[in-house]
Every structure is written in structure tokens, then in C-alpha cells.
Design a protein around this nucleic acid. Structure first.
Length: 427
RNA sequence: GGAGGGGUGGCAGAGCCCGGCUGAAUGCACCGGUCUUGAAAACCGGCAUACGUUUGCGCGUAUCGUGGGUUCGAAUCCCACCCCCUCCGCCA
């Protein structure tokens, strides 16, 4: 959610943002400004009447005390008349506020000036590439063949027990996951993050706070009876951790890392995009979250990005960093990077991390503020988050890139102590 | 599941029975100052949030879990809902 005053003062900027993000019509801005004006008009009038009513009530108290009953009676009559007027104004204000809030929620975050303007994925800028593609003396196979050969993941029984996209990981497959989780967490802790174990369900307020509601409810599994949502990412509970709080400036920056399973309905996908581990309804991810002062947020974005890239480098995975264009970056982000690893068996890039600066967009909804020494009022923090990292596609890329002619898989040195051996072979 | 207690400012905690003098005592934290070589202590002053309005000082409105009601007037009385805590039971 953007600051209303900002929209008033920067209407054209916000309109361009809507156009560049292709997320609605710029008329929304005018609509918001009209509703804002209406709301303010009603509010001013309402407050004037309230002032009169308050004065009258106070007068009555004094008259009663001094025994001037007659004057008190006429004041009571006047007060009753004001009260009737208040009712209509209050109703009008409420209606105006609801419309205004609803319209405001339709306005996307404004992209940072450094974000390229574009509409489609091909407009994203490849900002960085690292590593070399692995060379093979044989034809490398996609990871689903490897998973089957070594019996690492059981998709069919997962389908039976839960549904498509809910696999069982078995033996070395499960162990490999656990190794990655521990490796990622230890790396994050070493970089100064505080480890968090978060609830895997959140309430409606939390889902709204990070922007999953109102319009992305199809993304989430819902426990209707209890009004809870299964988290689509740890970003939701971890960012909401400080909802409705005023932090002290000395608390910042706050950096959390959290491992959680993530649940996504992801309706409407098909084909090779969802083959194997490429896209699942439940997957594991380590999420990194920063709460920072506004002036520090772009530095923090690069810092978090570097932490995520460091993991890929330590795993020896060739990857590239995309700077997402306005049309492909999402509603709530001000700037976003995607990290993609090269998957040699499928010969394609797989997205494994998405790193974004939300500026005040999330924090304003959640009322996460801090007391600043230089400002009289509490300031809204900036939030930044990114995956560090999402497991399934990392598993896919590691299996595909490190496969050997004899069918075994070489484990990257950084993971060996976690996995317990140098190679993965059939048990 | 049974019984009881409670939700007040950054935190702790009065006020509620007996409605107006309470946007709210007091303490802590925090900020500024005096003192000090410096710090601590002591002392003095400031300090809820949001919105509206104003060039500004300021003024106004709302907010004591949420929503509704009674009343000229509600933190305070009534109703509903949400949440938390304690004890007992059950259980990993």
C-alpha cells in the first residue's frame, strides 16, 4: 500500500507505475484522489459537528453541576440535534473510507528508477552470470530419471496419499534435502541472520499484511473451518512477526532466516514446467528477511542478494541474475532480482530465488515502524526478502549437473559434511 | 473439555465498583539540559498513535482488544465477538 499523501503529490509517477507494471488502468489514481477528496470533505464536516457536540456535552455537565436546569435542558435538546447530524456524517465517512481503502489496495508499488521498463520476461535484464556449464562425455539426463534410478523421490505414492505435487523423499533423497536445509541455515546464521521457526499457518490479517490477500487467495491452501491459510512462503509469518509494532532504531537492521515447507496451489500449470521437481505444491525453502531503515534498503537488497548468490557459488552451480523488468516484477515490489541456475539435464534455467525490496509497501499495511532519532514521528521500515534458497530446483540442478557416466552423483564439497559422503549412489 | 482471571501509551501498571475535573496517575525505557575531566548517580524539562486543518506556532477529531448499544456525555455501564493467562483434565 502506498502513502496517500505520496499519491497526491506524485500522481503522475504512480500512473506511470501502473502502466509500466501493466497491472490496471492509470484512472485508478484519479479515482483514489477523488475518493480521498470526498473523504476529507466529509471528515472535516464531521469533525466540526463533533467539536460542537463535545462543547455542548461539556456545557451540560457544568450547567447540571451549578443547578441551572433550564439551560441544561435546552443544551440537551441542541445536543440531540447534533447527534442526529453526526449519524449521517459518520455513515458517509465510513462508506467513503471503505471505497478509498479498496481503491488504494489496487495501486501497485512504484518501481525503483533503476528498474528496466518492460512487459514480458524477455525484457528482464541478465545482470550477471557466474560459472561454466558442466561438460559431459555422455548425454546427461533430466533429474526425474535420476530420481527414479536411485529411488530418491516417490511421486506416485505422493499422489495417492496427498495429490500430485506432494512427493515423498526417500533415503538419500530425504537426506539430501536435510543436508541442504542445514547448509543453507548455517550459512545464513554465519552471515548474521537470526534463525526463526515460524508457524506454517497464518490468519487472514497476516495474509493481507504481506499482500497475499486480497487478490492472491488462489495461491494459498485454506483451512476454512479455522480461518487459517497454509503459508506459501516463510515471508508471510516472518514479516508479520513485527506487525503493529514500533521498533527502536537501534534494533535495526533486523535479519531473520527461516526454514519452512511452503504450500502453493499454483493452479493452471502444465507440461515440462511441472515435470519432476520443477514445480510442486509443497516444497522446502529457506527465506531471508530484512527490516531496515529506508535509507539502508537498497544496500540491504544487494547484501541479501549477495548472500543468496554466495550459496550458489559454494554449491558450484552456474547461475545468472536477472533484474526483473516493470511488467514482470509483481505488484508489491519496488525492485526485484531473480536467480536462476543452469540445469544441464533439461538444458534450461530454473528460478531458485527471488529477491525483492518492498520499500514501505508491505510495512505500511502491517504498521511496522521504528522510532528515528532524526524524525519526530515513527517512520515506516523497509522490508526486503529473498529465498536463500528454494530446495527442489536446487536438488534438480545438483543432480543433473553432477551426474556421472556410471549414474552416481558427485556431492559438492560444501555439502559433504552435511550429507555424509562424497557421492550419491543407489542404496 | 471443565472452572476462573484478564486485555489501558515503547514496556510495566493505576483508573473501572461510584460515567463528566482522565488521552489517561506512577515507575521504567527513551530524548534534551544542568552537574562532571569523562561516565554513572542526582536534579530539571520533554515524551502515545493516526488523521484532518494551518506557511508556521498551533487547533481539532478519533483511538484504553474489536464491533454494537445505553446516555447530553463512556477506558468506566450493557450486549456480542476475538484474543491471552491461571488451575484441573487430556495429550506429544
Amino acid at each position: 500500500m502506498l502513502d496517500l499523501q505520496y499519491i497526491r503529490e506524485n500522481a503522475e509517477v504512480v500512473k506511470s507505475a501502473i502502466i509500466n507494471k501493466a497491472t490496471g488502468t492509470p484512472d485508478l489514481v484519479d479515482h483514489v484522489l477523488e475518493l480521498d477528496e470526498l473523504w476529507r470533505k466529509i471528515t472535516t464536516e464531521l469533525q466540526n459537528v463533533q467539536t460542537a457536540a463535545n462543547a455542548e456535552a461539556k456545557k451540560i455537565g457544568e450547567l447540571m453541576k451549578s443547578g441551572q436546569k433550564e439551560q441544561a435542558q435546552s443544551a440537551i435538546a441542541e445536543s440531540s440535534r447534533l447527534k442526529a447530524a453526526l449519524k449521517d456524517l459518520e455513515e458517509g465517512q465510513r462508506t467513503a473510507a471503505l471505497s478509498l481503502d479498496a481503491a488504494l489496495l489496487e495501486i501497485p508499488n512504484v518501481p525503483h528508477p533503476s528498474v528496466p521498463i518492460g512487459k514480458v520476461p524477455s525484457d528482464n535484464v541478465v545482470a550477471f552470470e557466474h560459472g561454466v556449464f558442466p561438460a559431459f562425455s555422455f548425454q546427461p539426463v533430466p533429474h526425474w530419471d535420476i530420481l527414479e534410478k536411485h529411488d530418491l523421490v516417490d511421486f506416485d505414492r505422493g499422489s495417492k496419499v496427498a495429490g500430485a505435487g506432494f512427493p515423498f523423499y526417500k533415503g538419500p533423497g530425504a537426506r539430501f534435502q536435510r543436508a541442504l536445509i542445514n547448509f543453507f541455515l548455517d550459512q545464513a546464521i554465519g552471515s548474521g541472520y537470526l534463525e526463526i521457526q515460524a508457524p506454517l499457518v497464518v490468519n487472514e490479517d497476516s495474509a493481507r499484511g504481506t499482500g497475499q490477500l486480497p487478490d492472491k487467495e488462489d495461491l494459498m491452501y485454506e483451512a476454512v473451518r479455522d480461518g487459517l491459510y497454509l503459508i506459501p512462503t516463510a515471508e508471510v509469518p516472518v514479516t508479520n512477526l513485527h506487525r503493529d509494532e514500533i521498533l527502536s532504531e537501534s534494533d535495526l537492521p533486523i535479519k531473520y532466516c527461516a526454514y519452512t515447507p511452503c504450500f502453493r496451489r499454483e493452479a493452471g500449470s502444465y507440461g515440462k514446467d511441472v515435470r519432476g521437481l520443477n514445480r510442486l505444491h509443497q516444497f522446502d525453502k529457506i527465506e531471508l528477511v530484512h527490516f531496515v531503515r529506508p535509507e539502508d534498503s537498497y544496500e540491504a537488497l544487494e547484501e541479501l542478494r549477495a548472500h543468496a548468490e554466495d550459496l550458489l557459488q559454494k554449491l558450484g552451480l552456474p547461475y545468472r541474475r536477472l533484474l526483473m523488468c516493470t511488467g514482470d516484477m509483481g505488484f508489491t515490489q519496488a525492485k526485484k532480482y531473480d536467480l536462476e541456475v543452469w540445469s544441464a539435464g533439461q538444458e534450461r534455467w530454473l528460478e531458485v530465488s527471488s529477491i525483492s525490496n518492498f520499500e514501505t509497501f508491505q510495512a505500511r499495511r502491517m504498521k511496522i515502524r521504528y522510532r528515528s532519532k532524526s524524525e519526530a514521528r515513527p517512520q515506516i521500515v523497509h522490508t526486503i526478502n529473498g529465498s536463500g534458497l528454494a530446495l527442489p530446483r536446487i536438488v534438480a540442478a545438483l543432480l543433473e549437473n553432477n551426474q556421472q557416466e556410471d549414474g552416481s552423483i558427485t556431492i559438492p564439497p560444501a555439502l559433504r559434511s552435511y550429507f555424509g559422503s562424497e557421492t550419491l549412489i543407489s542404496s
